[in-house]
Nucleic acid binder design. Structure first.
Length: 299
DNA sequence: TATATTGTTACACC
DNA sequence: TGGTGTAACAATAT
């Protein structure tokens, strides 16, 4: 489940390998991935044709990110908007040496041939191949002629603060939380408030802050809001630094696994011992999501 | 074989 | 309006 740290790690890795390369060829193996967002997508042949035609021959200028969206910026203003949703992967494999990518990091794909049955887009670049894989097919890779075209969709309109941006201050966060009601975890998962948290980091943030994820926001003290804020701005960069969380269907740009999973304190640890007090961690459903917290250390 | 899983959107409901 | 809950998307692990 790529959340912000995973997307940012992938962005940084890919940037290093593919920026400056020209796209030689594009092959789309599942049309719906490139034909829209949401649940009403279809395999639209004309959209697929347009997608390939617009991208082929263009040089990759940069890769940027907004929330969990990645933008692969092409020549003449064109760009790809990539959302991995839950199981999307972008894997770059260098032609120069099948076992390595630039930078010398080993690519751990020897027993994981590409393309595989979940490969839906193949971008052939000058020095390698970029694969889009997506087991559950919820993600998308869309082409736009300009950022204005994306903005027209209102795609980014409702996104809240980037947790790493200067605008995300304690004062602003506090004010926002004070204006809200409802379940804390729901607010943390709400991309309209702060972007980038998903089910893993929402639980991790609550644990580190010592606040139960099922607390009502309106009952939070100023100090608790501050703890939550501090946890967000500490955990997100730390996770990026470690290359994101390793989950079963997520790989880094170089094919390796992220290392943040080793630091998960609660995610996937329901029933296991709390690292602080040794008591059994509580697993339940909060805001419609599987949630793990310590009933003793989190108030 | 049934169930849990999860990012996001759509939509019904109060 | 704001907040809640659920379905949908799809395939896999358990």
């Amino acid at each position: 489940m790529p959340e912000l740290p995973e997307v940012e790690s992938l962005r940084r890795g890919l940037e290093e390998f593919v920026v400056g390369q020209r796209v030689r060829n594009v092959e789309v193996l599942l049309g719906k991935i490139v034909s829209g967002r949401g649940t009403k997508r279809t395999n639209d042949e004309s959209k697929v044709k347009n997608f390939c035609a617009k991208i082929s021959g263009k040089k990759i200028l940069s890769i940027t990110r907004r929330a969990k969206n990645m933008m692969i910026n092409l020549e003449r203003g064109g760009m790809l908007l990539v959302h991995l949703k839950m199981t999307g992967q972008l894997v770059y494999k260098s032609n120069k040496d099948n076992s390595t990518v630039s930078g010398g990091h080993p690519i751990q794909l020897s027993d994981n041939k590409l393309p595989n049955k979940h490969t839906y887009i193949i971008f052939t670049l000058e020095d390698g191949v970029l694969y889009y894989n997506d087991v559950r097919q919820f993600g998308y890779v869309l082409y736009f002629d300009s950022i204005e075209e994306i903005n027209k969709l209102g795609h980014f309109d409702d996104l809240g603060w980037e947790p790493l941006d200067e605008g995300f201050t304690l004062a602003a966060f506090t004010e926002k939380m004070k204006s809200k009601k409802g379940i804390l975890k729901k607010l943390l998962l709400d991309q309209k408030v702060v972007v980038g948290l998903g089910n893993i980091y929402a639980d991790e943030v609550c644990y580190e802050a010592g606040v139960r994820p099922d607390r009502k926001v309106e009952t939070l003290s100023k100090k608790e809001i501050q703890k939550l804020y501090n946890s967000i701005i500490r955990i997100i960069p730390r996770a990026i630094e470690l290359g994101g969380s390793s989950v079963a269907d997520y790989l880094l740009a170089d094919g390796s696994r992220g290392n943040y999973a080793h630091e998960h304190k609660v995610y996937k640890r329901g029933g296991k011992k709390c690292f602080k007090c040794g008591r059994e961690l509580n697993k339940s459903e909060v805001a419609g999501r599987t949630t793990v917290y310590c009933g003793f250390d989190q108030k």
